[in-house]
Design a protein around this nucleic acid. Sequence first.
DNA 1: TGAAATGTTGGGGCG
DNA 2: ACGCCCCAACATTTC
Length: 475
Amino acid sequence: MSKSSVIHWFRRDLRLSDNLALHAAVKNRVPIIPLFVFDPKILKSERTSPARLELLLNALESLDNALQKLGTNLLIKRGNPLEIIPQLVETYEVEALYFNKDYSPFAIKRDEEIEQLLSIPVYSYDDGLLLPPGSVMTNNGTPYTVYTPFKKKWNTFDKPAISDCDLASEHFVSAEIIEPEDIPTLDDLVFTNTVPIPTANEKYIQQRLEDFLDSHISEYDELRNALPIAPFDEKRVEGSSYLSPYFRLGILSPRQAYWSAREAYQKSESQSAKDSIATWVSELTWREFYMHILYHFPHVDRGNFRSEYDALEWAHDPDGLQAWKDGLTGYPIVDAAMRQLKAIGWMPNRARMVVSSFLTKDLLIHWQEGEKHFMQHLLDGDPAANNGGWQWAAGTGTDAQPYFRIFNPVSQSKKFDTSGDYIRHWLPELADLDKKFIHAPWEMENPPSDYPAPIVDHKAARERTLAAFKAIKGN
DNA sequence: TGAAATGTTGGGGCG
DNA sequence: ACGCCCCAACATTTC
């Protein structure tokens, strides 16, 4: 081949629309090789989930289909990008590398290394967040560690526009030149998944966003704490947009979500609808907050944000951990949520708070165990947001809830699953229980024999945890 | 984006 | 009529 090319390296930006690095490469007028690299290091990590991996494979397939319509192929490679990309640069006479920044510590290091390794220009873009780390700082120039002031400042910035770019075959290296390589199957990668995988098609997901904004978001404030059995349960109006898995892989861009929400805000007539939209946008801001936190305080990935909690004596309780993972703690609301996680790779936010409070405060098990388990199952499992959520629950993080804020699994259950339908669906052995006993079956005269008794007494567990945390405070 | 313990108030029963 | 007790309902404090 004679004509030179550039590479767009897809990572967490698996879409063609509003893709800043890709569109910048288009404007450069040199044919693009679209590349994705499977790094075995990531595949072997303890934080990989088969379900999320399958969603990724589907997203790659969808991306590949879209690229084929543009006369090219997604070039799939397996191996260390630090070895693979220099080889490709050689083979395809690549004159520049484009990618969108990934702000996790692992990715930052990798991307620095590749830039040093290559003699060609490397162009990277802030694409995955509305406002990149470093851009939202206190007036002293320090990072925010509390959400509310962060959000206040975040709201003062103009947000970047959506990138509009008509992609055409002339922008890409033709399919014949890129030897087509099959997208590996989950089997090839030696993973097994049992979770149903939602559609990963970019256009379809954009439609989902619009549908949510058109018909569901006005009730978001009211329903966001509900416990939907499944995200699309027809019997309920959603209290969730269920878009997190797509933000996770960059199938949907935060700019598109933000600007569409703004439009819906302008169109909405009631104040409560406007408030709901603002709350939903605030969830996007939480995502940005935790990404900024991980960027500025990379040590949170390895341990407590507040180092004073390093001295905390967590319980060594492998049986308790296993019961929690299996949904066999004897607390129906906890068990229902944990089984939902295993079954569909997703939990509503309220359920995540309940089970993380239970693991860290009732079982006094280190939040890192929960963090890892979530990463192994959540379709939307993201290092920054997941870590932030867990440290919030444990009380060890930025802007965390105070250690003494301990959820009572029974009152949470009564409050947020009043009917008991969520529990009945995920715990078939309790399907016949009356509303009166569904939240605390141990109070029955004859509790169902196939459901465990509570593995801890909440009152006693609460006191143990208060004592353990207070022991730290005394130092 | 809690829950439990403790404190306060006020109505009603009762002697 | 009055004081006393009980206790629900609500408020405040504490963890």
